[in-house]
């Protein structure tokens, strides 16, 4: 569980303290979702409970869908602007 909390923290820090580009925000969202899925699956492994693995599979699917939609919006944004840098 410590591992997943540390990974979630890395994801949040990457999301907030980001001055480079917007791709990094999307990557941080993926890391956050990965950390949470790891927590769910490890908890289900220790409880011998099948619900956790089912939950984990759904979260993986949703994370994939979210990244697809996010990248679609980013591409639509990029087509009009031409750059994805964050102006400081």
């Amino acid at each position: 569980m410590n591992l997943s909390m540390v990974l979630f923290l890395i994801g949040i820090l990457g999301f907030i303290l980001n001055r480079k580009n917007i791709i990094l925000m999307l990557i941080s969202i993926e890391i956050m979702l990965l950390a949470v899925t790891l927590l769910i699956i490890l908890s289900s492994f220790s409880f011998d409970d099948i619900l956790g693995q089912t939950y984990g599979i759904y979260v993986i699917a949703i994370a994939g869908a979210e990244s697809a939609i996010g990248l679609g919006i980013l591409v639509a944004y990029y087509r009009l602007r031409g750059s994805i840098a964050i102006k400081s």
């Binding site: 949470v36 908890s43 619900l51 939950y55 979210e66």
Partner: peptide, 16 residues
């Protein structure tokens, strides 16, 4: 998405 990640973290902690 950030808020969804928070909701997911809370629910996974409850499950854990």
């Amino acid at each position: 998405s950030l808020s969804s990640a928070f909701i997911l973290l809370g629910s996974s902690l409850i499950y854990g």
